[in-house]
Amino acid sequence: MVLPKFDGVCVLKEPVDKWRNVNGHNLLQLMYQDPKRYAMPFQSNVQLTMLELHNKKTSKSIKLMERSIFSARYCFVENLYRSEVIEASEFEVLSQWFEYVVNSSDIDLEVDLVVYLRTEPEKALDRIKARGRGEENSIPLQYLQELHRLHDEWLLESKFKVPAPVVVINANQDKELMLAEYNKLESIIFNKSREKALVLKNNAKIILNEINENQVKENIKEKGKENQIKEKIKKNGKEN
């Protein structure tokens, strides 16, 4: 993930180093080597370390996290359950623990904005290979396709609870273009003009940039036409 530096922003990267060393145990490697055996303890550790990041104190006015406890549950844990890597009992334990944490009045998990760097699975796989992280050298394309679909279900279709407005960015571009995109959206991401370009979708507000605005509008338009046709068919059926 490309994380540019902005003044007054505390950037918290995914805590991979902690996953690689849980008192000497590399849970990340163990999970990829034997997911049936180690997915449950790995995801338990992921939720713990994400919770630590959510509650990390900072003197900066803005805290920017790479992923969250929400994406861990709605995308990664959900995928493990759907693909039958974890048992139903393990899924329930992780889900109940997640629900307790997010609904606790003693824990502050408030999120102001979600930035969705929407990347095609093929592009994500290319970047994983280029990154060369040893534990990830056997990740199949299908796994990334499943996660991509779940991120869309969560952030675009609101099949799971969305904790905040969402900015959708086309992240299939190279590093230079991505940095330019960040700079262009800085005023929206950092709450300087967030009321600009808001579109309501179910219970989430999706803030659109130039890349996907026309596409989403066209989809909404086509969906409206489809509903009109269905209504006409239904009406004609009643008349007959």
Results as ranks from 00 to 15, higher is better:
residue 149 R to V: 07
residue 158 S to K: 05
residue 159 K to W: 12
residue 158 S to I: 07
residue 137 N to S: 15
residue 143 Y to G: 00
residue 136 E to A: 09
residue 139 I to H: 09
residue 160 F to G: 03
residue 139 I to S: 06
residue 151 H to C: 13
residue 153 E to F: 07
residue 126 D to S: 15
residue 144 L to I: 07
residue 131 R to Q: 12
residue 125 L to S: 09
residue 150 L to H: 06
residue 159 K to M: 13
residue 133 R to I: 13
residue 127 R to H: 11
residue 140 P to C: 15
residue 156 L to N: 01
residue 134 G to T: 12
residue 144 L to P: 11
residue 141 L to E: 05
residue 150 L to K: 08
residue 143 Y to R: 05
residue 142 Q to E: 14
residue 133 R to F: 10
residue 131 R to D: 05
residue 139 I to D: 02
residue 131 R to T: 02
residue 138 S to K: 15
residue 137 N to I: 11
residue 127 R to C: 13
residue 153 E to S: 09
residue 128 I to G: 03
residue 125 L to F: 08
residue 148 H to K: 03
residue 138 S to M: 09
residue 126 D to E: 15
residue 154 W to Q: 00
residue 134 G to I: 03
residue 138 S to A: 14
residue 146 E to D: 15
residue 141 L to Y: 05
residue 145 Q to E: 14
residue 162 V to T: 09
residue 148 H to C: 08
residue 126 D to K: 15
residue 137 N to R: 14
residue 131 R to Y: 10
residue 155 L to V: 06
residue 126 D to L: 12
residue 158 S to P: 00
residue 147 L to M: 13
residue 162 V to H: 01
residue 155 L to I: 03
residue 153 E to A: 14
residue 141 L to Q: 10
residue 150 L to F: 05
residue 148 H to T: 06
residue 131 R to P: 07
residue 139 I to M: 13
residue 162 V to N: 01
residue 133 R to N: 04
residue 143 Y to L: 12
residue 152 D to K: 07
residue 151 H to E: 05
residue 156 L to P: 00
residue 162 V to F: 02
residue 154 W to E: 01
residue 137 N to C: 11
residue 157 E to M: 05
residue 142 Q to G: 00
residue 148 H to V: 02
residue 161 K to C: 05
residue 156 L to W: 04
residue 145 Q to K: 15
residue 136 E to Q: 12
residue 146 E to S: 08
residue 144 L to T: 11
residue 148 H to R: 05
residue 153 E to D: 15
residue 161 K to A: 09
residue 144 L to V: 04
residue 153 E to W: 00
residue 127 R to M: 14
residue 158 S to A: 14
residue 137 N to G: 00
residue 143 Y to K: 04
residue 129 K to E: 06
residue 130 A to G: 08
residue 141 L to G: 00
residue 147 L to F: 03
residue 146 E to L: 10
residue 133 R to G: 06
residue 144 L to S: 10
residue 137 N to H: 15
residue 126 D to F: 03
residue 151 H to W: 04
residue 155 L to H: 04
residue 147 L to N: 09
residue 128 I to W: 08
residue 133 R to A: 04
residue 142 Q to Y: 01
residue 129 K to S: 08
residue 161 K to S: 13
residue 156 L to C: 10
residue 149 R to H: 12
residue 138 S to F: 12
residue 155 L to A: 04
residue 131 R to M: 14
residue 161 K to Y: 09
residue 159 K to L: 15
residue 145 Q to C: 09
residue 143 Y to N: 05
residue 151 H to L: 04
residue 142 Q to N: 04
residue 154 W to F: 10
residue 126 D to N: 11
residue 151 H to S: 08
residue 126 D to M: 12
residue 141 L to F: 08
residue 156 L to R: 02
residue 152 D to T: 04
residue 133 R to P: 08
residue 139 I to W: 02
residue 150 L to A: 13
residue 134 G to R: 07
residue 139 I to L: 07
residue 155 L to G: 01
residue 137 N to D: 15
residue 154 W to T: 02
